[in-house]
Design a protein around this nucleic acid. Structure first.
Lengths: 223, 223
DNA sequence: TTTATAAGTCACCGGATGGTGACAGTCAAT
DNA sequence: ATTGACTGTCACCATCCGGTGACTTATAAA
């Protein structure tokens, strides 16, 4: 349905001007507005009217270009390939615990700096309709991509450790603390607005990983 | 402002009938309806109209009895003294790690069984107005009460461990996983609807606590 | 018994939402 | 140049929201 105008633009101007270019520019403007709005105000009040208002156009264009709000969310998910930015810890390899420490630290810092991902994480916790399932699918794949390289760069995790569950527990804690940083700003007496607090959190993460997967100098955990 | 009718009911019928009893009964019905609605449908669409519809009365009573929706939330917070039920691990005492293991396990199970608390936790992550701050204050106090007895029953945590941050990390993970159980039902490939999955999660929690605080037989963590 | 106060019901207001139809301007193909 | 399809704008609809005033009925005090 997207190439409904292909019969006319095949011989038209290549790019930069013309109707097809204007249409594509407006599509991009709407998508940008939706991302900006979602990252800034969250999904409360996130709808056709708000996106159109942010984009400075009429909401009828959303229905014409994206087939309504659901279609806009689909196109939005396809645009969310960036998510958490470049994987900084791609170069690290070696001991499983070392790689995991590095990946988790980079992930936590990238997550805290990315308001859009935080808003979508919170959105998934509240809504469970197909709208969030569409977006959440793309996000889950991106997060998996962050951690799927750990095995390749480090070999399998030490035997006897439930690595899948332990990693999930650590990331779950990272998610929750990052979300609380944006909402109330504190959690169980911890001041999540204080950078020093996050240094302590990272230290605890490192301690847990070291205790489970051993130190980088070959010291495994005791049986 | 609540005892505005005290001048008339001091000599009236003690209880069971009369206008004051009817008013109190209707107040309770509204509060019950609000709790039921919040636990069932969450805070999406949680408002004056929805509560009145659930209670089967007119919404003007909410304004007359509670001074609007904010007052209703206040009265709701005062009613949330139960929260997570009885502290089952009150009897456990001894080693810090043992007490912590028991308390965290009971807390996780009580949290998973309590839909109302889960909804409020999710609500806090999204909204940050004074409405949720009021409710969240009572909740934070109740959670603190769960864990404040650990020190009394076990003495201080082992030196060198950042117990405050570690406990916060574990509870943050418990919160996030419990919330994902209700929303999408999975997290990083883990099937949170499978009871066996939760057994593995509890095992990982135990492993982490044992690694940080030592085993109950006096084995401390290596320096 | 009379009367003032309260309970409960109904209708309304302004504003916001999602969604649609009608209209004027504009570009491209004929 | 004429025609037709498309873009963008405006107005409108039904529905929901929070909030308020007016009204009828029942209770409790005088």
């Amino acid at each position: 349905m997207r190439d409904g105008n292909a019969t006319h633009t095949t011989t038209g101007p290549a790019n930069g001007s013309g109707r097809a270019a204007a249409r594509e520019a407006m599509r991009e403007r709407i998508l940008d507005a939706a991302l900006t709005l979602l990252a800034r105000d969250g999904f409360a009040g996130f709808g056709v009217n708000a996106v159109a208002r942010e984009a400075g156009c009429d909401k009828v264009l959303i229905y014409r270009y994206f087939n309504g709000f659901d279609g806009l969310l689909d196109s939005l998910g396809a645009r969310l390939d960036i998510w958490l930015g470049p994987e900084d810890s791609d170069g690290v390899s070696g001991h499983y615990g070392s790689v995991m420490r590095s990946v988790l630290q980079d992930y936590l810092r990238a997550l805290r700096a990315n308001n859009l991902v935080k808003q979508i994480l919170a959105w998934e916790l509240v809504q469970d309709d197909d709208a969030t399932r569409r977006i959440g699918k793309a996000k889950g794949d991106a997060i998996g991509r962050w951690f799927q390289g750990v095995r390749q760069r480090s070999g399998p995790p030490p035997a006897g450790s439930d690595a899948a569950v332990l990693n999930a527990v650590l990331i779950a804690a990272a998610h929750h603390l990052a979300l609380r940083e944006n909402s109330s700003g504190d959690f169980m007496g911890l001041d999540l607005r204080d950078p020093n607090c996050w240094a302590r959190i990272e230290a605890v993460f490192n301690t847990i990983i070291t205790g489970a997967y051993g130190a980088p100098d070959g010291t495994e955990d005791p049986p």
